[in-house]
Write a protein that binds this DNA or RNA. Structure first.
Lengths: 202, 202
DNA sequence: AAATGGTTTAACCAAATAGTTAAAATAAAT
DNA sequence: ATTTATTTTAACTATTTGGTTAAACCATTT
């Protein structure tokens, strides 16, 4: 008895921490055990193999992202609302967890087959998003851009700076982390203004 | 005698192939040797360790990107020219080497210290870019956006779809690679139109 | 043809690492 | 108190993998 549920959570959290920063190949079971404050044997007692543990972690991270995306759609009736809440949500998330997108993208790249099942089991109703985007793209006051292109643009503008933080800090901000943080603070507002300037007529 | 120069090129090419797809941790010296059509001993004979080989490969990939970026700046006198040639250049590059950005970003993330030296030795004169961007941001016909934000936006819009191709194919294009390819074909034009719509007054 | 120096091979070594086992310890439930 | 499930310890195995060694090979030079 003693713990069990608590321990499982502790392990998942520790595994998330290590996998997210080091990736599947770079992560060590010993380091996960140390981070969780337990030993390796117990780690294998709970999750039989590294792969199984990784799958749990990746699924939880991914499901989390999708759940939040879904929440965003639910409350949006216009394209402005959608963009505003999407960008706000992701900035809030990524400021405290900036390593998540790089992790997800790298692991999907490593084994693209996992994503198929993940999307199936994600329960995300894409139709709702498509319907909203399509409806809004018909508006008189909005330029006739391809809605998919615009959607990818909003996602790119939001997520890329986090994925590329290393290169941006080194290349553009001369290694000055504070300048980069300041850039990120202003980024959200910039995205909203920039996208509005692009898609609205007049 | 015999070969040597040819063999070295063969190894670098093979190493690039494997490192780019698997990352440093995921790459295996044996696989690099196999890909190069030689054996592991010869691999170590040419490049003493995995790290040394990786450094060579990474440096060459990175230097290549920087060189092309530099070329872009050289021929640009206006912001329109800069954006046009930047986007064109990267689309041309990335269509045949779509894995490069994910690779670079992942490795910089894994060991951010490498980028400092790389940038030093890259010979990129950032001042030229800054001068151009700053000069152009003063133009009467252009909205007063923060030029750094705009620059990051152009980079994000261009590169992110390649970094996130796996998730975009799975999530947005339902696993249909052809739809994604089509999306990429239209992406360049979209970026140019979208950015122009955003930054020009009236 | 003999010497030279780069090239190739196969067998090998050492370290790291995922995973196992079995026994002891601990704490809660009965 | 006994049982039961969880946790710890520590030693161990098997495999992978980066790296080494030494001998053989081959092309060119002398």
């Amino acid at each position: 008895m003693v713990n069990n549920e608590n321990t499982e959570i502790k392990i998942i959290e520790a595994a998330k921490e290590v996998f997210v920063h080091k990736g599947f190949e770079g992560a060590r079971m010993q380091e996960i055990a140390d981070t969780a404050g337990i030993n390796k044997a117990l780690l294998h007692y709970y999750f039989r193999s590294k792969s199984k543990l990784f799958d749990k972690v990746f699924h939880s991270v991914f499901a989390d992202l999708v759940a939040k995306l879904y929440k965003t759609v639910g409350i949006s009736n216009t394209i402005e609302e959608f963009i505003e809440s999407f960008v706000s949500l992701y900035f809030e998330e990524l400021k405290s967890k900036p390593y998540i997108p790089q992790f997800v993208l790298h692991e999907i790249n490593r084994d693209p087959s996992v994503i198929v099942n993940l999307i199936k089991s994600s329960g995300l109703d894409k139709q709702k998003i498509i319907a909203l985007i399509h409806k809004e793209s018909q508006r008189e006051d909005i330029k006739q851009f391809d809605p998919v292109q615009v959607m990818v643009t909003v996602i790119s503008m939001t997520i890329f700076p986090f994925v590329a933080s290393g290169i941006l800090v080194g290349f553009i901000f001369d290694g000055d982390q504070a300048s980069f943080d300041n850039f990120i603070d202003e980024r959200k507002q910039h995205i909203l203004e920039f996208v509005n300037a692009a898609i609205f007529k007049k």
